Amino acid sequence: MTATVHTLPRSDASLAPILALTADGMNHVNAIILDRMQSKIPLIPALAGHLIAGGGKRMRPMLTLASAALLEYEGARHYKLAAVVEFIHTATLLHDDVVDGSDMRRGKQAANVVFGNPAAVLVGDFLFSRSFELMTEDGSLRVLKILSGASAIIAEGEVDQLTAQRQLETSEERYLQIVGAKTAALFAAACRIAAVVAERDAKIEQALDDYGRNLGIAFQLVDDAIDYDSEVAESGKDKGDDFRDGKMTLPVILAYARGSEDERAFWREAMSGKRTSDEDLAHAISLIARHDAVNDTRERAKHFANRAIDAISGFPANPARAAMIEAVQFAVARRF
Rank of each mutant, 00 (worst) to 15 (best):
G139V: 09
E199N: 06
D292S: 06
R174Y: 06
R60Q: 09
A317F: 06
V332P: 08
L250C: 01
S230G: 11
L162D: 05
L21F: 00
P251H: 07
A293R: 05
I146G: 03
V232Y: 07
A189H: 10
T4S: 14
I253Q: 02
D103C: 04
T170K: 13
V114F: 00
A48V: 01
E231A: 15
M26W: 12
I288E: 05
F128A: 09
I312P: 09
A333F: 04
A23F: 00
S171C: 14
Q165S: 11
L65V: 13
L186E: 13
S148V: 11
H50E: 04
L254N: 03
R264N: 13
L21A: 00
Q220R: 06
Y256E: 04
K145G: 14
R200E: 14
A225L: 08
L93N: 03
L15H: 01
H89R: 01
Y79V: 13
A155K: 04
L147W: 05
E169M: 09
E172N: 00
K247T: 08
N112W: 00
L93F: 04
E231G: 13
D24N: 12
E261Y: 09
D241C: 05
D210P: 07
G240H: 03
L168A: 05
L281Q: 07
K80I: 08
V121C: 10
A13I: 10
K108I: 11
F115V: 03
I226N: 07
D310W: 00
A82L: 00
P17T: 07
K182G: 11
D245I: 01
S313K: 04
G116I: 03
D242W: 04
I18A: 01
M37W: 09
F132G: 00
F115T: 11
T2S: 13
H95I: 12
A3I: 03
E231R: 13
A190C: 00
P45T: 08
H95D: 10
S67T: 03
K57W: 06
K57R: 12
L21I: 00
Q206G: 08
T183L: 11
M135D: 06
N30V: 04
F266Y: 05
R130G: 08
T92L: 07
R307W: 08
D280N: 05
I18K: 02
T276S: 15
E269I: 09
G55N: 05
I204L: 03
A308S: 15
Q206P: 06
H291V: 13
D310R: 01
D280W: 03
G49P: 01
I325T: 15
L287H: 01
R106S: 06
T92F: 08
L254G: 06
L70S: 11
M59Y: 14
A255P: 10
L19K: 04
A218P: 01
D296S: 03
S313L: 02
R300H: 05
